[in-house]
Design a protein around this nucleic acid. Structure first.
Lengths: 177, 177
DNA sequence: TGGTTCTATATCGAGCTGACATATATCGAA
DNA sequence: TTCGATATATGTCAGCTCGATATAGAACCA
């Protein structure tokens, strides 16, 4: 699965500019399970346009570069549907946090606590974003599935880390006594 | 966090060849939260060697290319400890599965079930690998933290998907009646 | 008035993946 | 017994992606 298919996915919900696609990926429904940068989105849109899978309409704006609004074509929809009918590749999960935790014996206690608190904040932000997505009633069939899955997994992480933090607190109080 | 730091991390546990590092990343403790290919591991090891962060010993083998065994140096350990004392970047999670689920209204019911079953199998395989890691008593301070976190999150995913599959079954039976 | 953030497009070096090439050993199935 | 698959073992390379950077005006707050 590449950025081109991802763009087709976003454009199948509504037409959008490259900038708006990036925002959808960062803040919207897609944010929990996919990422892409401008450096891959813009070339992908140009290619999709060349292949006839999207159309391009330049929206004039006073004193700004034209907003290039892309819309999916029928061929694009067909390509999307074809691309998603492939057994999904294994999830890819990269976590510097867990890497650092593996070597926590070499970390100063204060830093350890700070790192765990950051991870907790990140997870809670993700959960918050899901809550916001639920309020914006854009709910298709699949979006509830995705949001419920995300909520289940993220909540489990939050619960685990909160317990760990409490234990850390207790043991540091004990050590001080 | 790059592949060089990752290699230092693995080598801090025991000396290993590039091939063995890859295996550790695929099957061992690191598998839950990091990935790297030969195309990045071999160049990383060469660079680390050039920088004096690891040493290289060629182990002769009959009828096979020499096994190049790398070991971390003191400078390497220092570099590792320095590199992990940076607040971790946000977790990166990429899931083709969830992308497909978002558009599940366009998927044939049989494929939908198959995709969910594959995801479930993948998650259970990950859980199984954690169980195996627990048996091999290589447990450092941090490894329990990492394994417990992984178990918490993966179990939540499994539980969610099993419920979904049951519901799918019920609704397809109802539809058949 | 000045600083920060937002809208908006685009490029590019560096890093990484996934596929391929190479070579041998081992082990089960046809 | 032969054939294919899997495992050991190192390495290259095209192509994809990230993250930083460039550009530039708008909006907003202090």
């Amino acid at each position: 699965m590449n950025v081109k298919t991802l763009c087709l996915g976003v454009l199948s919900l509504r037409e959008a500019s490259g900038y708006e696609i990036k925002k959808e990926i960062e803040e919207g429904l897609f944010s929990h399970f996919i990422d892409a940068s401008f450096g891959s989105i813009y070339p992908a849109l140009m290619q999709l346009n060349a292949e006839g899978l999207v159309t391009l309409r330049a929206e004039e704006q006073t004193n700004r570069p034209d907003k290039k609004v892309y819309a999916i074509t029928e061929a694009g929809s067909a390509a999307l549907i074809k691309n998603i009918q492939v057994l999904p590749a294994r999830d890819k999960y990269k976590s510097e946090f867990l890497f650092e935790m593996l070597f926590q014996e070499f970390l100063p206690p204060d830093f350890l606590r700070l790192a765990i608190e950051k991870q907790l904040t990140d997870l809670k932000e993700d959960l918050q974003r899901i809550t916001e997505c639920r309020l914006e009633e854009t709910c298709e069939f699949g979006s509830n599935f995705v949001m419920d899955y995300g909520e289940a997994v993220l909540s489990a992480g939050v619960k685990f880390l909160e317990t760990k933090l409490t234990n850390l607190h207790i043991s540091s109080v004990k050590a001080a006594q």
